[in-house]
């Protein structure tokens, strides 16, 4: 059961953001160093892991990549629970994806744990000539909302490693400080268990009539 289980910390991280901003490619770049120009759309949630070292500790990241299409939030929002980190991704070349960041923050507030560490990620930084979201503007927005901020390119891999490193380190600092305060016990992040994926009550009447 436990051959892959050698780690000091296990952190659940989710990727959220509009459809087509490059969430899946960020994950594949980070976990497998792959990039796929014609990557297929994520249906529901997808799961991968990767371990990194911080302060000689092994931190295993359990990464949950989510579908960006709006209607999929009915499924994906259940996966925010238990996540200690979130990468909120937008496309620097598509202003609308940045405008929606506020809605995604609300999603996190509604469904995720209050202490979740959020990093705002402006992806596709390789598209310099098409930039629609100025770095400073996003940086300022992040600062005002207590988010970390980074720009990445899954295509040319700039900052991808760094973005995950940073958020995991940040979580690690918080968790290890907390552990110190409470005598170091009980840091056993969950393996994705007890995720409630029932539809919202609003959908209830629609379900009854099937088949």
């Amino acid at each position: 059961m436990s051959k892959d289980d050698e780690y000091d910390y296990l952190f659940k991280v989710v990727l959220i953001g509009d459809s087509g901003v490059g969430k899946s490619n960020l994950v594949s770049r980070f976990t497998r160093n792959e990039f796929n120009l014609e990557s297929k759309s994520t249906i529901g949630v997808e799961f991968t892991t990767r371990s990194i070292q911080v302060d000689a500790k092994t931190i295993k990241a359990q990464i949950w990549d989510t579908a960006g299409q709006e209607r999929y939030r009915a499924i994906t929002s259940a996966y925010y629970r238990g996540a200690v980190g979130a990468l909120l991704v937008y496309d620097i070349a598509k202003h609308a994806t940045y405008e929606n960041v506020g809605r995604w923050l609300k999603e996190l507030r509604d469904h995720a744990d209050t202490n979740i560490v959020i990093m705002l990620v402006g992806n596709k930084s390789d598209l310099r000539h098409l930039r629609a979201v100025p770095t400073d503007e996003a940086k300022q927005f992040a600062a005002e909302n207590g988010l970390s901020f980074i720009e990445t390119s899954a295509l040319d891999s700039s900052n991808v490693e760094l973005s995950f490193q940073r958020i995991l380190t940040e979580i690690y600092r918080i968790v290890s400080n907390k552990a110190l305060e409470s005598n170091g016990d009980g840091i056993r992040p969950t393996g994705g268990e007890t995720i409630n994926v029932a539809p919202n009550s609003g959908d209830a009447n629609a379900a009854g009539g099937c088949c």
């Binding site: 200690v84 968790v175 409630n196 009550s201």
Partner: peptide, 23 residues
């Protein structure tokens, strides 16, 4: 179960383990 979905939701939320950052 859908008709008393709200109750079920509440029960599930109550039964969920505490998240790690709150530990």
């Amino acid at each position: 179960t859908l008709t008393d979905r709200t109750d079920v939701d509440d029960a599930l939320i109550a039964a969920a383990p505490a998240d790690i950052s709150a530990s």
